Amino acid sequence: MEKWEYRSIKFETKGFMGGILEIEEFNHQLNNFGEEGWELVSCVATSQGQGTTREVIAIFKRKKF
């Protein structure tokens, strides 16, 4: 039976009302996790209200050996 381990990381958004994600830093972090064998499973944006996002949470998994 395959076993998995999971990891979540949180990215804060910028801007007066939030909602601005520093995409270069975001991609850099995603690539770092990919290099370590983590696969991105999901991304969730937390709502601050009126369509703005306060945080983005990325969820990863990789096989446990």
Rank of each mutant, 00 (worst) to 15 (best):
V56D: 01
M17C: 02
G15W: 02
C43D: 05
G49W: 05
H28M: 07
E25D: 12
I57H: 12
I57T: 11
E2K: 05
T13D: 05
F65P: 15
E36N: 13
E24M: 07
N27F: 07
S42A: 13
E5F: 04
G19M: 02
E2H: 05
C43W: 05
E25H: 11
T46H: 01
F11V: 01
G49C: 13
C43L: 14
E22Y: 04
E12I: 02
Q48N: 06
K3G: 01
T52K: 10
T52Q: 09
I9K: 09
G49A: 15
E22D: 15
G15A: 04
N32I: 09
S42K: 13
T46K: 12
F33I: 01
M1D: 09
S47Y: 13
E24S: 10
S8C: 10
R7G: 07
K61N: 05
F33W: 11
E2T: 04
G51T: 07
K64N: 09
E35W: 06
Q29S: 13
E36S: 12
F33T: 02
K3I: 01
R54P: 01
Q50C: 04
E2G: 02
F26T: 00
I9H: 05
W38A: 06
F60A: 05
R62T: 12
K10Y: 10
G37F: 14
E55W: 12
K61Q: 14
G18E: 06
G51H: 05
